[in-house]
Design a protein around this nucleic acid. Structure first.
Lengths: 155, 155
DNA sequence: GTAAGTGCAAAAGCTTTGCGGTGAA
DNA sequence: TTCACCGCAAAGCTTTTGCACTTAC
């Protein structure tokens, strides 16, 4: 257990080094809080967890570091459309195509995608699935063009 | 064209009646703005559109009616996780299982779901797909139990 | 020693709420 | 006539920003 901890800590230290981020105690505890909570936590929840180990931490520091982690690819956000409400008027089942750059959303007819089978295994006990939706992520035409113009060495 | 408009208007009037909503000019224009814009608009964008036809409309009215539409099933929101940032530490490709009631998110290993083929047809011109993720929606065990306790006639 | 990170507090979005006047049924 | 709806303004969240102090490198 302690070994696992030590290894995880080393991994995280290396992770910071690779990305040019300073390794601080706050960062370590914030990162551990996200990894340990298996429930895709909100910044507020991370704050509560981290405060148990670092009572003096501020919510602003949580936000700053979460943003740093997102920017450097240490963490991801569950949805690209967080922050503003996006509305659907197409009430028939369909899928989405999302531009990761400008967040544009395009509809794809359900019939254009082969039906997805519900997973048989490894469901949390008692969970009943009602429907599924596929989200394809990529880059739309205008964002691809603009990116080429502005930055030659984008990943 | 005018016929289509008239028909859509009648449809919307009936839609309001069916759900016990008053049919107002503001509602009609807001609804049309969402349907006409094919880009899954934000409340702010709807506001801009609607103001061209009703300059005196307020953003609060947009929000109130959008909420009314969502509650009565006239519109849907693109993501259930709008409003608060939710974080991922699992950086390997995987899918999600989401409880529509409590918004809990569970991970599903990619191998538990058959690979989804990228759609060949009907893509917006120039869009390049990078990856896809499946979101299964349903009700988790505790929400199902609680719902049964509190409301007998839930849909 | 220097640049980056932290904590605090203020500010900036996005969204909801309360209230008096207006309009649909 | 009555109740729901509208517009306005204030308040409530979530998130970002600025600044002085501290820490990692």
């Amino acid at each position: 257990m302690s070994d696992l901890r030590t290894k995880a800590l080393d991994d995280f230290r290396r992770c910071c080094k690779d990305r040019g981020l300073a390794f601080t105690f706050q960062r370590q505890v914030i990162y551990e809080a996200v990894v340990d909570s298996r429930e895709h936590p909100t910044p507020e929840l991370i704050y509560e967890q981290v405060r148990q180990r670092i009572p003096s931490i501020s919510l602003g520091t949580i936000y700053k570091n979460v943003k740093t982690f997102l920017d450097s690819g240490v963490l991801k956000e569950v949805t690209l459309h967080h922050g503003t409400l996006r509305l659907e008027s197409n009430m028939t089942p369909h899928h989405h195509l999302v531009c990761s750059s400008c967040k544009a959303i395009f509809d794809i007819e359900e019939s254009a995608v082969e039906p997805v089978q519900f997973p048989k295994t490894r469901l949390p006990a008692g969970f009943s699935i009602q429907h599924c939706r596929v989200e394809f992520t990529g880059v739309c035409k205008s964002c691809r063009t603009n990116r080429r113009k502005t930055s030659k060495a984008s990943s």
